[in-house]
Design a protein around this nucleic acid. Structure first.
Lengths: 226, 226
DNA sequence: TACCGTTTTAAACGTATGTTTAAAACGAAT
DNA sequence: ATTCGTTTTAAACATACGTTTAAAACGGTA
């Protein structure tokens, strides 16, 4: 099947280049040059640049959500009526992501970067596509998350969820830069799984912190010195 | 001074449009149309699109860092030798940011979005500019942060700092979308300062969580079911 | 009013983009 | 060997971009 090779090469090059430079900044000519295929191949195989972007996301998210769905339902069954444990829940997600990219660990960084870009960068069609295609999985994870923190109000849970998403996505968006800076600053090279081991307690700690401000810092004024 | 009006109009339009669509996705023609000025005015007043981007950042960061510097040094003096308190430190930063945009509160969202874009989006020249121009302020805040968490190793502090940055920037990057979703999901409209009141305990909780994983989840395997 | 530096303007420049076209090359089936 | 659907290719298309140009308009000063 030689035609699969062309699609595959395009997808790989696109995944790499999009994650490095963003969507608008990456031209089809750069992608096809890197893939070693003709420029028109993108429109022939994918129809448009937008569809290529969607296909790149699907290349990771479809196997990831499939695996995650089964992992989460297994966990949910094992729970019966007890509340879910947050750190275990998050651990499942991270491990599923790691497993999905088990053969090429750098792919995980790339996809986190891509998800971060999809969220922050304009490109409304990406958000629409992701929501249409994977919104259901997102919602069912949210439900489990809610069950793991029954004491939290809906509003607090909502915002903390997105704070957590931010810490995770932002970190992996720049994880390569950050790892290089960490090496320079603190002298030790970190693996992605090491970063996850530091990130998981952080987000769990943030999620589970008591809801009210426990220190006397409720006012809005600082010192007043201009 | 009619020439100041042109620069001002360009800056305002650029700030707004860049934060909504990103840098590469916003053309000078869109900016000048929104500003009601001639296309060539950008290159006449700013030299290039890159310099315009830098000027937009400077429009917020220069007053912000000036104010922050004085606030932090006041706090530092008041400390003498005792360690800084994390939540108070973070509170100073947030309040300084709020004060810098006191007249137009939506500007804070915009600048957080812009900073998030600068960090995640390629555009290497922006990161270089920010580091050259404001790297010193960043470093001196890092020092105070280190003093507020003396028990943390350099490596853990480094990563948690960036987790925190992620939660903050990501949140404000999408704060308008998020507020709209929150309104839809939980029914209550949030103000930016309300979001900060939820965000501050979250990041403080994450920063101050005990370093080691306190639950038995150190292994990498999940359940094995495909 | 005449002058001159500053600012604005319309038009064009060169380049790059996503997409389309129509012909060529390919591969299996008749 | 010929046919036919699929895939690849080089070339062109139309559009959009950032930037430059040179002339026009402006505004205070002599």
């Amino acid at each position: 099947m030689p035609q699969k090779d062309t699609s595959k090469a395009i997808l790989e090059a696109a995944e790499q280049l999009f994650s490095e430079r963003g969507f608008a900044e990456t031209s089809l000519r750069t992608i096809t040059a890197r893939a070693g295929v003709n420029l028109a191949a993108v429109n022939y195989h994918f129809g448009s640049k937008k569809s290529l972007i969607h296909a790149v996301f699907a290349g990771f998210l479809t196997p990831f959500t499939a695996r995650l769905r089964s992992e989460l339902s297994l966990y949910e069954e094992s729970l019966a009526d007890e509340p879910a444990e947050l750190r275990y829940l998050l651990g499942i997600v991270f491990n599923t992501a790691l497993l999905t990219c088990a053969d090429q660990p750098e792919r995980l960084n790339r996809f986190m970067r891509l998800l971060g870009l999809a969220y922050t960068q304009g490109q409304g069609h990406i958000k629409r596509y992701l929501n249409r295609e994977y919104g259901e999985d997102f919602a069912s994870f949210s439900d489990l998350l809610r069950r793991s923190m029954p004491e939290l109000s809906a509003e607090e849970l909502y915002w903390r969820f997105h704070f957590m998403l931010g810490a995770v996505m932002f970190t992996f968006s720049g994880v390569d830069t950050l790892k290089a800076m960490a090496e320079h600053d603190v002298g030790r090279l970190a693996q992605t799984s090491d970063v996850i081991d530091l990130l998981l307690p952080f987000v769990a700690g943030g999620m589970q912190v008591p809801a009210q401000l426990p220190v006397a810092f409720a006012g809005r004024e600082v010192s007043g010195a201009s």
